Amino acid sequence: MHGIDRDRHFIHLHCLWIVGCVTSSSLPSVPVSISFPVGSQAILPCKWKSQLDNVPVCHVLWQTPDELVFEQKGEQRWQAREFEGRLEVPEEKLWEGDCSLILRDVQFGDVGLYESFIVVNRTRIKKRVFIQRVQLSVYDHKFKLSMGMGEDLVLKLHTPQAMRVVFQGRNSREWKVLWVRGDEKVNRGRLEEAEGVVVLRGLRIDNSGTYKVLDSLGLSVSTVKLTVEEVAKTQKIPHIQDKPVGKSTVYRSSSLLIVFVLLISLLIQHLL
């Protein structure tokens, strides 16, 4: 473990030295803009083979205007603490010329400008070659639902960073806390927690309103506007189907017609 920490520390210092001492290529004015929903996996695009040839070792850097966030050189990797466990550049794709950064469980705090570089070492001079600028934005989930009384509302949390679920009734201005992660006292109500979701069972009319999933900073992960409709109990009226016309029906009708004609004939003869 001490060796790994020492290597990470060395890589970090080495990168800071590169950032401070090596001239980079001029940066384009317009970055690539991408947008992902909070809690999803974001991919920040980067292609290096179109700008470089015969790179002996794939050494990639990703940074924001404020800090270095990720560095990878061969099997050695380093990432900033706030991104720990969430960043990756697949090594097999890197050798194919794809230096795209995978950012898992993207959060609102990840919003910003990212820049990628490939470090090359030629004639004992290390040079940072600029590859791509990416502007990342993150948005929340929004849903509008209509459900019937007695149904179950399933609220997806979307991210492990989701901490609370609050509710505002349709005719109310007050927000009521329905669920707090890890708080057994609050969670003794009708909301049941399962893997990645909370469930409100047996909907009533007064459950109509707005539900919000909030993260640890109180930012909205998702907003669900729910309308609960009363399911009317209607009596089933039996439907009388017309009987199909078959041979027996035709024969019966013909017999009646013959009898009717005979009676009329007898009546006429009697009158005459």
Rank of each mutant, 00 (worst) to 15 (best):
L94F: 02
W95I: 06
W95V: 04
W95G: 12
E96K: 15
G97A: 06
D98A: 04
D98H: 01
D98E: 07
C99N: 00
C99I: 03
C99E: 02
S100C: 09
L101E: 08
L101G: 08
L101Q: 04
I102Y: 03
I102S: 05
I102F: 04
L103M: 14
L103V: 11
R104F: 01
R104K: 12
V106Q: 12
Q107V: 03
Q107R: 14
F108K: 00
F108V: 00
D110S: 11
V111L: 07
G112M: 13
G112D: 05
L113T: 12
L113D: 04
L113E: 08
L113C: 04
Y114C: 14
Y114P: 06
E115M: 10
S116I: 10
S116M: 04
S116P: 04
F117N: 02
I118E: 08
I118N: 06
V119R: 01
V120K: 07
V120W: 09
N121Q: 13
N121C: 07
R122T: 09
R122D: 08
T123G: 06
T123H: 15
R124W: 11
I125C: 13
I125H: 09
K126H: 13
K126W: 15
K126N: 08
K127E: 09
K127F: 13
K127N: 08
K127R: 13
V129C: 11
F130P: 10
F130D: 07
I131L: 05
Q132H: 11
Q132L: 08
Q132F: 12
Q132D: 09
R133A: 15
R133S: 15
R133T: 15
R133L: 14
V134W: 06
V134A: 06
Q135S: 15
Q135F: 11
Q135E: 15
S137N: 09
S137G: 14
S137V: 15
V138H: 00
V138L: 01
Y139D: 01
D140H: 06
D140M: 10
D140I: 08
D140S: 14
H141E: 01
H141W: 03
K142E: 07
F143S: 10
F143I: 10
K144T: 06
K144M: 05
K144V: 07
K144S: 07
K144C: 07
K144L: 07
L145P: 06
S146G: 10
S146Y: 03
S146N: 03
M147E: 02
M147C: 01
G148W: 05
G148H: 10
M149A: 07
G150S: 12
E151A: 06
E151W: 15
E151H: 11
E151R: 12
E151I: 14
D152N: 03
D152Q: 01
D152T: 08
L153M: 10
V154G: 02
V154D: 05
V154W: 13
L155N: 02
L155P: 00
L155S: 05
K156T: 02
K156H: 14
L157M: 05
H158N: 05
H158K: 02
H158V: 01
T159F: 05
T159C: 01
T159G: 08
Q161S: 13
Q161D: 15
A162N: 11
A162R: 04
M163C: 10
M163H: 15
M163G: 15
R164H: 13
R164Y: 14
R164F: 14
V165C: 01
V165P: 01
V166A: 01
V166L: 01
V166N: 00
F167T: 11
F167S: 09
F167Q: 09
Q168P: 09
Q168K: 11
G169H: 05
G169C: 01
G169N: 00
R170G: 05
